[in-house]
Design a protein around this nucleic acid. Structure first.
Lengths: 367, 367
DNA sequence: AAAAATTGTGTGTACGCACACACAGAATTG
DNA sequence: CAATTCTGTGTGTGCGTACACACAATTTTT
């Protein structure tokens, strides 16, 4: 009773079996109407009994349609983290270009509140088929995404997750910020042998408007709640972004004078390289530090500061997976997983070179 | 001077530019000959200057051929490492099925010398378009791969790298065994603070026939050469695979009696869970151990033995990347990178759950 | 030296499959 | 009976592939 293999079923086979033309079958498949009930029934029966599945290659080729995806991320020309994201995005693009996908960058300055909104008119005027958005500034992002909803444009979030009830929200890809805070706490705890006081540095202007930083803080603190250490053992310190290096150095100096028993510091951004330099100058290299992202300044810091860990968010993979999810959503009409968390890679001076060697190659051939 | 975007370059564009027909362009692309030097030069110039890349959809559709790939790996029904490889392979297959790819498993027992060779007649009789081979047993593998050469079947190596001068060798994907030995040495060295003697356990029947184990040993030892520690500080110990657990326990016991100052052991296989159990029984949990692979027995070991590290080879990614490389090679006629090293993930009790959470999702949507 | 056969070089075009438009014929309406 | 709507067919398109064929240049045969 095994079904005999007759090669892939084509639309022509359906047409023959139902006694109609391929055009009619096509209209049934796409619900374009203009088919008598009688024929529609026959065609559906034929599709079911022959177990027809359209050839996705021929479909894409024939449709000959273009999908334009807008990439809404912080300006990347000067930022190696976002440059890596673009890297991943372009790798994904290479894979899906033949399917008619093209991209357009809509950069904004994430240090300027409201700058993201300058792209609102572009979104409204041109018709994008999808957007890849890094909602780094929470309130701006919500305004922006509300407009996407109005324009009926599906969007994918990267790097920072926002909770929104929205059918057009394809999903989120990035790190689990809460988990990364937890991991940072574990690392500091392990290496300092639970001695001294630990601290969180938020080195960023708008902390309360940065969802991922808040999540990292929560994760960090929750580790100590579990371990029954007193909450007083954790200091949260908010530093505005440095206007001058001297400025920053002085505020760290003041902080250490007030808290001489600090044994570890968790920096919730990629700006940890500023801290490592200052600690060296202040001769406080006994302090263990944990920060984020394998940008080049941090690679240098890792090599010169002994007690330092980096947690990498794998920006290349983020960009790659982000665009691919939109592809899946638009072409296969397949919902992406709502939350795609990427691995938290721990990098030390020791495994740095192996990490750099290997991670560049894993996308070589994704199709 | 920016290059204007004119839509995808088609084969017709090349033909126009070179002043020939599409057929001629096609013959140049595929090296089918019958093209004058003059025209060949013109076509190649046009391809280069227009940055032509063939539309992979149209190519597959037109070629209308099937590719059958043989998967030659150790039997996976009872082995969770190879099961994960199959997992990755099947994920890759899902992506490339529409391009006419199908697979067929040719399993062998890697604990039985020569078992791999039972598939030789299959290779010779049926015509495979490509093979994905795990050359775990060196001499068997060479015999096998020589036959591939005779049959003109391109092959991709996974998990274990072999040096072969061979145009049909597409590439290798897996870990850098030498580097992983180096990393193991670093970890042990760090945690034991350079006190005591370190040892390598090869828990496998045929060590000299397992290229990756030999490489791990070399990497491990080279670390200490750099650090100017005396070679005597490293003991290499070869254990045959255990016939009975008691048997194994006794040989470990004997080893520890002879070498009471051992502070760390590097196990070059995934069988580290046997060792952790024995050390617990012998009350030598002071010994730090490093081993390979996140198989379920090792996950359990990780949770019950404090001083243990695992280096993961990411089998899912290996299988995935292996098959995708063959796809690239056969369809895009693009040579894969000869060596694709995957990241060396260090896993401890601490980051285990985050690792398990995240790593499953990254293939969701690769196309 | 002429004719025939062989080789070299190149063009034209029918696939593969799904899509979508132009159009034809039938049924329905006014 | 003409005009409109509905239903369905035919066919050109997207792009690359690969075969059939044409024509020229060269070699071989007579």
């Amino acid at each position: 009773m095994a079904k005999q293999y007759e090669g892939p079923v084509r639309i022509k086979d359906i047409a023959d079996r139902a006694g109609v033309s391929t055009g009619t079958v096509d209209r049934v498949i796409h619900g374009r109407g203009r088919v008598s009930e009688e024929n529609e029934r026959k065609v559906k029966e034929a599709i079911a009994s022959l177990d027809y599945e359209p050839n996705i290659l021929a479909r894409s080729l024939a449709r000959n349609s273009n999908f334009e995806i807008g990439i809404v991320i912080p300006k990347f020309s000067t930022d190696s983290f976002w440059m890596s994201q673009v890297n991943g995005i372009e790798k994904a693009l290479k894979n899906i270009r033949d399917f008619g996908f093209s991209i357009r960058f809509l950069e904004f300055d994430d240090q300027v509140h409201g700058d993201m909104l300058k792209h609102l008119t572009t979104i409204q005027t041109e018709k994008f088929d999808g957007l890849l958005v890094a909602p780094t500034i929470t309130d701006d992002a919500h305004v922006f995404l509300n407009t996407c909803e109005e324009q009926d444009i599906p969007y994918m979030l990267v790097n920072t997750n926002l909770e929104r009830e929205d059918d057009l929200l394809v999903g989120y890809v990035g790190q689990n910020s809460f988990q990364s805070g937890l991991l940072a706490a574990k690392l500091l705890s392990l290496v300092t042998s639970n001695k001294g006081v630990l601290s969180i540095f938020h080195m960023e202007k708008e902390v309360d408007n940065s969802e991922h930083m808040l999540q990292k803080e929560k994760g960090f603190i929750s580790f100590f709640k579990e371990k029954k250490r007193k909450p007083q053992d954790v200091l949260v310190h908010r530093l505005p972004i440095m206007t001058t290096t001297t400025n920053f150095k002085n505020s760290v100096k003041k902080f250490l004078k007030a808290n001489p028993d600090v044994s570890g510091i968790f920096v919730t951004t990629s700006r940890i390289h500023f801290l490592s330099k200052v600690l060296k100058k202040l001769e406080r290299e006994d302090i263990v530090i944990v920060g984020f992202d394998l940008i080049k300044e941090n690679v240098a810091a890792l090599n010169s500061y002994e007690k330092m860990f980096l947690i990498n968010q794998n920006p290349v993979l983020q960009g790659y997976a982000g665009l691919m999810s939109l592809f899946d959503f638009l072409l296969k009409k397949k919902a992406a997983k709502r939350l795609q968390y990427l691995p938290l890679d721990v990098i030390t001076k020791e495994n740095l070179s192996a990490y750099l060697d290997t991670n560049s190659t894993i996308f070589e051939h994704y199709k």
